[in-house]
């Protein structure tokens, strides 16, 4: 079987199986590669929709992790399709209000919350990709239109706050043992996303600083940036303590004090 004729539904079903483990990377990857091969994500989302996600908290949580990954790494059409399906996504958050048997209820609620906010951000601000990888032209847009840039930074910071809150919730729910791998695996996309956002905010603030030179107007933004810097620093420090994470991804190292507005290298 070539990678082009993939049995989408079976792959999705395997990605969100009942076992309390991380969603298998090979299945998630197959979904991501599928969206690039076909330049469309409709089949993937349809396959998620027919899964019996309401029957099991763990498979629902795994589905959310997989969806997040697909939004991040998939073809840009994944984000478009995600925006189209946000009502369905919202309905997923209502399945286990406030708890549920194995303690995934809150996590699911918060995850859905975050994904909706992410999609809303992408709907308003075009030109960002799923992982917020740094692209030069975006900061150019910012400097040519400071008002829009200011707004984008504020929205990015709101998103960053939501992720931070969600990250804390995951950490507070982790217990030792192999079974928590499922929860920990949700941190993988979060780390890459927060770092992407962090770098974006930093370069945007610097670009604004260079362009306008009005430090008074930027002061509240910069203060909030510093605050988020310290929280992110702590989050990464916590992540570095988990062996499963450090072996799988490279956890970025932030300087212990927040960077200044003066643009230096990197």
């Amino acid at each position: 079987m070539s990678r082009f004729d993939l049995d989408v539904e079976r792959t999705v079903r395997k990605a969100c199986s009942y076992e309390e483990t991380a969603p298998k990377r090979k299945h998630v990857r197959a979904c991501i590669v599928y969206t690039w091969d076909h330049k469309s994500s409709r089949a993937i989302f349809n396959a998620f929709k027919v899964q019996p996600l309401a029957q099991d908290e763990i498979s629902l949580f795994k589905a959310l992790i997989s969806l997040h990954k697909i939004l991040q790494e998939g073809h840009p059409s994944a984000i478009v399709e995600g925006i189209r399906n946000r009502e369905w996504l919202e309905s997923l958050g209502r399945i286990y209000p406030g708890g549920g048997g194995s303690g995934y209820g809150h996590l699911i609620e918060e995850y859905v919350n975050f994904l909706l906010q992410k999609l809303k951000f992408h709907r308003v601000h075009h030109g960002f990709n799923g992982t917020f990888e740094y692209e030069e032209y975006m900061s150019l847009v910012t400097t040519s239109n400071p008002d829009e840039g200011y707004e984008a930074i504020l929205d990015l910071m709101d998103l960053q706050d939501t992720i931070d809150k969600f990250g804390r919730l995951i950490f507070s729910s982790i217990s030792s043992g192999r079974r928590s791998e499922c929860k920990i695996s949700a941190l993988v996309p979060l780390v890459s996303e927060t770092y992407g956002i962090y770098k974006f905010i930093m370069s945007m603030i610097r670009a604004l600083h260079n362009q306008t030179g009005e430090d008074d107007a930027l002061k509240p933004l910069y203060d909030r940036f510093c605050e988020e810097h310290y929280r992110l620093f702590e989050l990464y420090a916590d992540c570095s303590a988990i062996k499963y994470l450090t072996s799988l991804i490279k956890i970025p190292k932030l300087p212990s004090s927040a960077p200044t507005l003066e643009a230096s290298e990197g």
């Binding site: 990377r25 090979k26 990857r29 991501i32 590669v33 690039w36 790494e73 073809h75 993988v188 072996s247 799988l248 991804i249």
Partner: peptide
């Protein structure tokens, strides 16, 4: 590039439970 990019999180555990994916990542 996406084929290569998505391999950055490649995992494979052999029968001994050792993760052989590191080199691929």
């Amino acid at each position: 590039l996406y084929i290569i990019k998505t391999l950055r999180e490649f995992i494979h555990e052999d029968e001994m439970g050792v993760d052989q994916g590191q080199i691929v990542r």
